[in-house]
């Protein structure tokens, strides 16, 4: 009779598994893809925590928040990774997140970090990326872009369906305030089209459909480091560049709250931070001891960083969206 032995083995196996705590991390889909930071992060944390990291992917940052709101207090998540500062105020409102108690930490970002609930893990500047050979003299500001000949075309993402799209909306608003509608009217003839997400827009740009695409100042680093192609660059704008800061937070009702906070510590440690630049193609929130990978020094460094405080972005985005829609619908 072999069955009892197998059954006993299975029992042992389950009890052994039960002793290993499982940390469930909700994040956006591209984080956990084979080409994102996910696989390396999972391996590195499992080595130090003696736990099992389980990633759950949900679209992008905004879908992630939507999913959390749908799940409410019954959420399986212990850690949520990948919200940005445009979403943190709304995320805090859900009441799901715990305070991180890591207020003494300092970060290598152009702005101070004071949020008691969320810790940043990477950041970047939005920028228009272009091909140096095809566009030798890129515009140096939104006004210069508006004044450029009409056949200079940009492709942008829709703020209603995409994170960079929302970033551009807030960028123009932060730089120009009440003049934003006027700026959008000036930009309108240059907007070749608006896409659902970043991938469509960037794909169209690489196919040569548009002269510039809304992306990040770090995008040229991918082409340089992974493809040894230095033809792409980001255009520095005089108004300054709007920032995106991506954050993680622990779920207060989690059974593994201590482990979750341990993960947040890991998130701001060198092991995690050194994975970020060449997988997420963003700046790490704390520059690791080894510095940034070779190639990042070629990127533009905007002199002025623009960003709305967490609560403010949520307040003005509806108005900014209406201005955008009115200007581009004509």
């Amino acid at each position: 009779m072999k069955y009892p032995i197998i059954a006993a083995g299975a029992l042992l196996a389950t009890s052994a598994l039960a002793e290993t705590p499982v940390l469930t991390v909700y994040t956006y889909d591209s984080f956990i893809s084979d080409w994102g930071p996910g696989p390396q992060v999972e391996k590195a944390f499992e080595e130090r925590c003696g736990c099992d990291v389980k990633f759950v992917g949900a679209g992008d940052g905004a879908s992630l928040l939507g999913r959390l709101r749908l799940e409410g207090v019954r959420t399986e998540a212990d850690v949520v990774l990948g919200l940005d500062t445009n979403l943190t105020a709304l995320a805090a409102e859900t009441g799901l997140f715990a305070l991180h108690d890591r207020n003494e930490l300092s970060f290598d970002m152009p702005v101070e970090w004071e949020d008691p609930m969320f810790l940043p893990y990477d950041w970047g500047y939005f920028a228009f990326v272009y091909d140096k050979a095809k566009l030798p003299e890129p515009p140096t500001s939104f006004e210069a872009l508006a004044a450029a000949p009409d056949d200079l075309k940009i492709v942008i993402e829709d703020p209603r369906s995409s994170t960079p799209g929302l970033g551009l909306l807030l960028w123009v608003k932060a730089a120009y305030g009440d003049r934003a509608p006027e700026i959008w009217e000036g930009l309108a003839p240059h907007v070749l089209t608006v896409t659902k997400g970043w991938s469509e827009a960037y794909g169209m740009f690489l196919e040569g459909e548009a002269d510039m695409v809304l992306s990040y100042t770090t995008s040229p680093a991918y082409h340089l480091i992974a493809e040894q192609d230095d033809s792409k660059a980001a255009a520095p704008f005089d108004e300054g560049h709007y920032m995106q800061i991506e954050v993680g937070g622990a779920i207060a009702s989690s059974d593994e709250l201590e482990l979750a906070k341990e993960f947040l510590d890991f998130m701001v440690s060198d092991d995690f931070q050194s994975i970020i630049p060449t997988t997420n193609w963003m700046y790490p929130a704390r520059t690791p001891a080894g510095g940034l990978p070779e190639g990042f020094e070629t990127l533009i460094a905007p002199e002025k960083a623009l960003i709305y405080a967490a609560g403010e972005a949520a307040k003005i985005r509806q108005e900014a969206l209406e201005e955008w829609r009115a200007a581009l619908s004509q």
Partner: peptide, 27 residues
């Protein structure tokens, strides 16, 4: 996505995009 991308901007907003906006942007 097709309507938006080839429609050239928010002029080409379809109901499905409005649904997307209601979910994502406004919950």
């Amino acid at each position: 996505a097709v309507a938006l991308t080839l429609g050239g901007g928010p002029r080409a907003t379809t109901v499905e995009l409005a649904i997307y906006q209601a979910f994502r942007f406004e919950f």
